[in-house]
């Protein structure tokens, strides 16, 4: 099974992602907690791309491909922003006290916690973030 969603580089597009995932969840028979987890993952990945990925003010399209192969759900997010490998991010120290904890830096960490595999590739001036989840 295969579905594609295109979004523009605007935070307001997250609302469209939410609606799309609800429809996909019904179609592919996902439970609500899974739909919410996938929503979280996509929001974190897209917010990063939209906020930090582009050096110009222009409009860019981001492609999101959903594939269900057996018990695996594979989500590929493809953008034409500057090269950025989120898998190389340092993990936040989640044992720090409230006073010591820096604000922010949790987005990629949450993606890694929800998904079973997070891979990055740079091909033909595009970033490919490939996220895999076992959905049994």
């Amino acid at each position: 099974m295969y579905r594609v969603l295109w979004v523009d580089n605007q935070i307001a597009e997250l609302t469209r992602v939410e609606v799309f995932l609800e429809e996909l969840g019904e179609e592919w028979a996902f439970q609500m907690p899974l739909v919410l987890s996938l929503n979280l993952v996509l929001e974190e990945a897209l917010t990063n791309i939209i906020s930090y990925g582009y050096d110009d003010e222009g409009k860019h399209s981001i492609e999101i491909v959903f594939r269900k192969i057996g018990a695996e759900l594979i989500i590929s997010i493809i953008d034409d922003g500057h090269a950025y490998d989120p898998t190389s991010n340092a993990e936040p120290d989640i044992t720090l006290s409230a006073e010591e904890r820096p604000v922010g830096g949790l987005g990629i960490f949450l993606i890694k916690k929800v998904m079973n595999k997070v891979e990055y590739q740079r091909k033909e001036n595009k970033n490919y973030l490939i996220l895999t989840k076992n959905i049994g």
């Binding site: 919410l36 929503n39 979280l40 929001e43 974190e44 917010t47 409230a98 006073e99 904890r101 604000v103 922010g104 949790l106 987005g107 949450l110």
Partner: peptide, 20 residues
């Protein structure tokens, strides 16, 4: 509250730091 992302967690942490 039925959904929160890191953007929301950020606000919770800022509020906690202020209150502390």
């Amino acid at each position: 509250l039925n959904y929160i992302s890191s953007s929301g967690l950020r606000v919770f942490l800022i509020a906690l730091k202020k209150m502390k």
